[in-house]
Each structure stands twice: as structure tokens, then as C-alpha cells.
Computed example of a mutant assay.
Amino acid sequence: MLALDGLDRHTPWNLVDRLPLDFATFHPQGLAFAAGLTFLSSVEIQAENRGVGHVFIVDKQGALQRDLIVGDGEMYHPGGIDFDGSLVWVSVAQYRPGGQSMIMTIDPETAEIRERFRVDDHVSWVVCDLANALVHGASWGSREFYTWTIDGALISRWKNPSGFIDYQDCRFVGESVIVASGIAVLPAASGTCELGGLALIDTAKRAIVHEFPMSLYSAAGHTVTRNPFSVSVDAGSVTMWVAPDDGGEGNGTEILTYRTTIL
């Protein structure tokens, strides 16, 4: 966490890899790595109030290995996802604020999908603290945070004290801390602009302990923290993976890898 505390708006990020995905990716939402594979959640909009939720399983060369269909009826919008060291956690919601959601897991070895519990709100992302058997998530736009047991019993619900950005995809990094990426779409003289950034959420303190903007943009002009995100901290560096562009824009969906040195 100390390494992430040291990041700010002046941190220089270097693009070290660009992996194009040459299959229909639709509107990607979440990114996780497990069992040597990449898991990418995405929503395919077919009509008003109708769509398909996907979790794509991709190999290291960017080739599609499996297309897992997730959801139930109007719950077809998968959100941010996370790997807890054993399972990939996925939230799938109705595509509206306040809509119902189902929380699911995927076994990365077998691709088995299991429903865990349901929530009477739109859950936009979900992470698991496996050591303490807790699941954390947030509402539409991450305006409220939730904590449940593994079986879905509600433990806590609290309002997001920050209005900086809406968190879209998150990683649980231990000791009650979540790293979140996100976006705010703001009015501008020429229409709108996208503000991206990262944040550290301390679920034990119910606080945003660090938050800063980022000025990195994709081929389609999106902030790189628009949707799918993952991060790792190694000795001397922080690596960030993002996939901000939809399949039908820019160069299509690419998984971009950025790295910065920790001083």
C-alpha cells in the first residue's frame, strides 16, 4: 500500500505493452488475471432493456479461449471483476441505477460459474477478501459501498465521501484496502471531457485514503481508467493493465500495460 500511496498526478507511466483483441468485445467492464489467463467482462447491448453478459477468457496472445455467458433475464450487465487467489468474482446487474444484481464466481481452472447471492441494488463491481470471508462492492457510480459475507449477508453499507470519479473496476490488495480505477464525464466548452483517476479505499476505516487524477488516454480518446483495470506492485515498480476502448471504436479493444518506477 505504501507504494500506491506514493503515486500522484505527476507520476510518469510508461506504456510497455499493447495487446489487441481480435474478437467482438462489445463494451468491456472488468479485468482480472488467473491461471495464466485473462478474464474480461463485457456487456453486449442488443436493444433497450435487453442484452447479453459475457466473461471472455483470453490467452497470453490475445486469442479468445472461452466466451462465458453470465446473468439472468434483465440482469445482463457484468461489472468490475476480481480474482481472490482461488475464484474470479463477477457482479451482473440490471442496466440501471437501483436495479437488482447477482454475485457470481468463476473457477478459472474449470470455467464453472456459480451464483453466490443476489442484491436489491445495481452492484457495479465486486471484490473478495478471502482471508476474512468478506465480499465488497458498490452501487451504480460507486455512490455507496457494501460489505457482505461470502454467503451474501449484509454487514455494512456506507456512502462514498468522494465525488471525484465513479469507480468502475477494483482490486483487493489486502489489509482492508481496495485499489479503484474510474471516470467522471464532465461538461466542457466543446461538449464533454473524461476525467480518469485511481483511488485507495480503506473499507475498515470507511474512507478514501488517497485519490488522484491521471492524464493517459487511449486510441479512441478515452481516459485509460474508463473501465477494465488491474494492478500489481513489485519490488521497485507498479504495473497497471487497462482496456478502455470498446470493440467498435479506435483500434478496437486493446489491453494496455503501463509501468512506473517506485522511488
Rank of each mutant, 00 (worst) to 15 (best):
E194R: 11
G141D: 02
V43M: 04
G99I: 09
Q61F: 13
T225S: 10
K159M: 08
A235C: 08
P78D: 02
I178L: 06
T225V: 05
A138Y: 11
L200M: 15
M102C: 07
N14E: 13
G152Y: 02
D22C: 05
G80T: 04
T261W: 02
L195T: 07
L256G: 01
A189E: 13
G247R: 03
E74S: 14
T147D: 01
I150N: 00
R157P: 04
D245E: 04
M104H: 04
A199N: 10
E74D: 11
S86Y: 05
H210E: 03
Y76V: 01
L195S: 07
I208V: 15
Y146A: 05
V179N: 00
A243V: 00
H27N: 15
C170S: 13
R18W: 06
D121P: 03
E144M: 05
W148R: 03
R18F: 03
G30I: 14
F26N: 08
T149L: 05
G98A: 08
T147R: 14
G174C: 03
G98L: 14
V209H: 08
R206T: 10
M75P: 02
S230W: 10
S91W: 00
V231C: 04
G163R: 09
G137K: 04
E211N: 06
D107W: 09
S124H: 11
A63E: 11
G152L: 03
V231P: 12
D245Q: 07
A47Y: 09
L186T: 11
V238S: 01
G141A: 07
G163P: 10
F39S: 05
I178F: 05
D82A: 15
N132W: 05
L87Q: 12
I255F: 06
A199R: 12
S42T: 05
F117I: 14
V242E: 01
Q65T: 06
A111N: 10
T223S: 14
E74Q: 13
E48D: 08
M1S: 12
M75E: 07
A204C: 06
V127K: 08
N132S: 12
A131T: 13
Y217G: 06
I208P: 13
S124L: 06
R226I: 01
G252D: 05
A24Y: 08
G99E: 08
W148I: 01
H136P: 11
T223P: 14
R143N: 03
L134W: 04
P244M: 11
K205D: 07
R18I: 10
A93Y: 06
I106P: 02
D107T: 04
N160W: 12
G80L: 11
G79S: 03
D72E: 13
R96G: 09
G182H: 00
P161V: 00
R9V: 06
V123P: 14
W125T: 09
S101Q: 04
Y76H: 15
E194S: 13
N251V: 10
F56I: 14
F33T: 03
A180V: 13
G174D: 02
I45G: 00
G152R: 05
S176A: 09
D120I: 05
L198G: 13
G248R: 01
I69H: 02
N227H: 15
A189K: 12
T253C: 09
L7A: 01
Q94K: 15
I103G: 04
S139N: 09
G30L: 11
A219R: 06
W89F: 09
V90P: 11
P187S: 00
